[in-house]
Amino acid sequence: MKKITLKITINGRKHTLRIDPNLRLLDLLRDELRLTGTKEGCGIGECGACTVILDGRAVNACLILAGQCNGREVVTIEGLTGKDDLHPLQQAFIDHGAVQCGFCTPGMIMSAAALLDQNPTPTEEDIREAISGNLCRCTGYTQIVEAIQAVADDN
């Protein structure tokens, strides 16, 4: 395997990296850059735990090669906030009891953040559609939808 050069902006920081060509975006984030907020559940696009925002849109980081992100901009859960304060979505998830084990939470929040960037005043149907690719095994979706709705209502 020949290493390739990757120029990529992650959470506002520009990187120039030499990477293996078979690395997924998920591997780059977790293993190379230690941004372990992004989770790997299924690895085959079914669970949404690996959701990040690529050029403004939610994508599964397990289904895209890092090398395909040259010149592009990625936001992960770590990039949603400043150092101390929580993003309104993160606070709302806590307030509405939308987190239990937390494994799905980063992906859920990134899907919700992408939705609210595109559509600040979504309907409940829009919210359910936006997180339909994110599975949660614990909380139940009602609290999650309520948390997102609460942030939307403040918009």
Partner: peptide, 9 residues
């Protein structure tokens, strides 16, 4: 087709 994350790419 699929979910939002799939349709985006």
């Amino acid at each position: 087709i699929g979910a939002t994350q799939h349709r985006n790419i």
